[in-house]
Simulated scan of single mutants.
Amino acid sequence: MAIPQFGQPEPGRTYGDRPAAFGIAERDGKIAAVRVKKPDHAAWLDLPGGALDPGEGPEEAVVREFAEETGLKVAVGEAYARADQFFVNTSDKAFNNRATFLVLDITGEDAELKVEDDHTLVWLPPHEAIETLRHEAHAWAVAAWLRLLRKR
């Protein structure tokens, strides 16, 4: 199966490959998301996660990123989807996120793990997440997760 590609590259820009991992953690019918607010930019919503550090696999990266962005401790279930997303970050660097999406279980909370002050944990109904997440790939991944749940 082909990996879907989202986003439109800007002509003349080179997009570096950026292996990444994002997760879906559900609590009381809502999924974890982060509201990101950077100076001089409007806030946006993302699934928690991000780039893999050197030597990390998607599983290790999503556990680390979830903790840094939300303060939530998570256990990795299955990797259920892959999708790529062209985007330009707030530092004007162009990337193609090569994302793995994983199902996660929340195992605890530890506020000391949260180190990204510009990220705030929010809980969204899945359909609202589909409508409001910044990246098309994230919205697509939430829809794929909902379909996965329905098959079980």
Rank of each mutant, 00 (worst) to 15 (best):
F6R: 01
D84L: 14
Q5L: 15
P19M: 04
F66R: 01
G7E: 05
A61V: 01
P11Q: 14
G50W: 03
P39S: 12
Q85P: 06
A79C: 11
P126A: 08
Y15Q: 04
A21H: 05
R18I: 00
G55I: 13
G108R: 11
W140Q: 08
T132R: 15
E78G: 12
E56N: 04
A51W: 05
V88A: 04
M1V: 04
F101K: 05
F6K: 00
G50C: 07
G55Y: 12
K114D: 11
G16P: 00
H41M: 13
L133Y: 05
H135G: 10
G23N: 04
V115W: 07
E56M: 02
P54W: 07
A42H: 10
A67P: 08
S91H: 10
P9G: 04
V122I: 09
A81S: 00
A32T: 08
Y15S: 11
L47S: 10
H135D: 11
G71A: 06
G77W: 03
V74R: 00
W44V: 13
A83N: 06
G108P: 11
A81K: 01
F6V: 02
N97Q: 09
T90D: 14
R150P: 02
K38H: 06
T120E: 15
T132H: 14
K37A: 15
G55D: 07
E109P: 05
A25W: 05
K114Y: 09
A2P: 15
P126E: 10
R134D: 11
R147F: 00
K38S: 03
A2E: 13
F87N: 06
V34L: 08
W145M: 08
